[in-house]
Amino acid sequence: MVSAVQNVAIDCGDAYALACFWSEVTGRPLDPDCAPGDRETAVLLAEGPMLYFNQVPEPKTGKNRVHLCLRPDTTREAEVDRLLALGASFLADHREPDGSGWVILTDPEGNELCVLRGDAEGVD
Rank of each mutant, 00 (worst) to 15 (best):
S3F: 05
S3C: 03
A4Q: 14
A4L: 15
A4F: 13
A4E: 15
V5K: 04
Q6M: 12
Q6H: 13
Q6C: 08
Q6L: 13
Q6D: 14
Q6E: 10
N7I: 01
N7E: 05
V8R: 00
V8D: 00
V8Y: 02
A9E: 05
I10V: 05
D11F: 09
D11N: 09
C12R: 00
G13E: 07
G13P: 02
G13I: 05
G13A: 12
D14V: 01
D14K: 03
A15H: 01
Y16W: 07
Y16C: 09
Y16D: 10
A17K: 07
L18H: 01
L18T: 01
A19I: 01
A19G: 03
C20H: 02
C20Q: 12
F21H: 00
F21L: 01
F21Q: 00
W22C: 02
W22I: 00
S23G: 11
S23H: 07
E24I: 01
E24T: 02
E24F: 03
V25C: 03
T26I: 11
T26S: 10
G27C: 10
G27T: 06
R28K: 14
R28I: 04
P29R: 11
P29E: 13
P29T: 08
P29C: 09
D31P: 01
D31R: 04
P32V: 06
P32S: 15
D33L: 07
D33E: 13
D33I: 07
D33Q: 14
D33F: 10
C34K: 03
C34G: 08
C34T: 08
A35F: 13
A35M: 13
A35V: 15
P36L: 07
G37R: 12
D38V: 05
D38P: 09
R39F: 09
R39S: 08
E40M: 13
E40L: 14
E40P: 02
E40A: 08
T41L: 10
T41M: 07
T41A: 15
T41S: 13
A42K: 02
V43E: 06
V43I: 08
V43K: 11
V43G: 05
V43Y: 11
L44Q: 13
L44R: 14
L44F: 11
L45I: 12
A46C: 14
A46S: 15
E47D: 15
E47Q: 14
E47G: 09
E47P: 03
G48P: 04
G48Q: 07
G48S: 07
P49F: 13
M50F: 09
M50K: 10
L51V: 04
L51C: 06
L51T: 02
